[in-house]
Simulated scan of single mutants.
Amino acid sequence: MKREPGFPHVISRVVMLLAVLYISWGAAFYITKAVYARIAWAPHELIDFFINTTLGFVFFFLIGMIARRIFGDRNQHVFMEMIDALKRISQGDFHVNLDWGFGDRNERQGRPHPYAQLANSINDMAANLKAMEELREEFISNVSHEIGSPLTSIIGFARALKDEHLDREQRDRYLTIIETECIRLSRLSENLMKLAVLDSERHPFHPSPYRLDKQLISLILACEPQWEAKNIEMTVEADELKVNADEDLMSQVWVNLLHNAIKFTPEGGSISVSLSHHGEEAVVRISDTGPGIDEQDQQRIFERFYKADKSRTRTAGGSGLGLSIAHKIIEMHRGTISVHSRPGEGAAFTVQLPLH
């Protein structure tokens, strides 16, 4: 809907038109005065009035045409520059920054000039598309790297197996490495498919009431062989609590967080899991005594393929997708997930989940 101009804007326009009209009449008056003196003619007052009025309107329209020409050219230049910017964006060039230097149209009311608003919108669109393109390129690079590394290992050890002089022990070791890398590729493919389905919002989402404390305890017990193998002390404090959520999706969140805690907790360390009720939210906190996470890494730890310690995560078989999947699932439930950590003091992940 078109917005009507404000009263101050109308007044300023009227004053400007009157000023131009008075200037035109004043110019006509002095010009005719000079002409009359030049030709020594003193016309009747009525004739003088008609001549001055006619000449004043001629000057008024000439000034209007000149101003329209000047500002019309400027507007045309603005539109041509805008069209050129949109063409560049459509061709994949997002380095666009329009700055036409328009001041505020109604500075007192704080409303920017429409052209300035349009320029800011195009600049914002180009910046957002540029950021998305950078994320896409980074995603492709990460996927290529994550797929390329295990494939290189598989090819190398498969060629080594062609050696007829290998003993049984070496052959079995090579086959184990190939099997491990194949499992890693399978998990990567599964996680990528899972993220693609979650992003497309085609994943079946069936929230229903269930006991969150029972789910956490059962998943912790399912991981018992893994944390007992590292002599990790597991502490669990869970209030009896019922939530309305998708149980299958939430189990992926807890499994990812528990596996990460076990993976990065050193031999003889400890892991603490707590479940409490705060207002209308269930709060789950999973903390460990691992090496911790740098503050700069905490800002990006939920990004896809991001690894706070790339060398350590690669040896542990991670792909950097687990926390991204957990973050996406929590978002679907309109909850939040955060991390608090200091290097050398472990890490604590906190999930706040609405009860209803």
Rank of each mutant, 00 (worst) to 15 (best):
G92H: 01
D104T: 06
G101D: 06
N97C: 15
P112E: 03
N106G: 09
G92V: 01
Q91E: 15
R88C: 11
R111A: 02
R88I: 11
I83G: 11
A85G: 03
V78W: 04
H95T: 15
S90H: 13
E107D: 12
D104W: 02
Q91L: 15
E107H: 11
N106T: 10
S90R: 15
F79S: 15
Q109Y: 02
L98N: 05
D99C: 03
N106M: 10
Q91V: 14
F102P: 13
Q91H: 14
R105Y: 14
S90T: 08
M82T: 06
D99K: 05
M80H: 04
R108Q: 13
P112W: 00
E107W: 12
R111F: 04
F102N: 08
M80K: 11
I89T: 15
L86T: 02
M82L: 12
V96Q: 09
P112A: 00
R88E: 14
R108N: 14
L86N: 04
V78N: 04
D104E: 12
G101C: 07
D84L: 13
I89P: 10
F79I: 09
F94I: 04
G103M: 05
M82Y: 03
H77F: 04
N106K: 07
H77Y: 10
R111G: 07
V78S: 01
H95D: 15
K87Q: 00
Q91P: 10
Q109E: 11
W100S: 07
V78K: 02
N97D: 15
L86D: 06
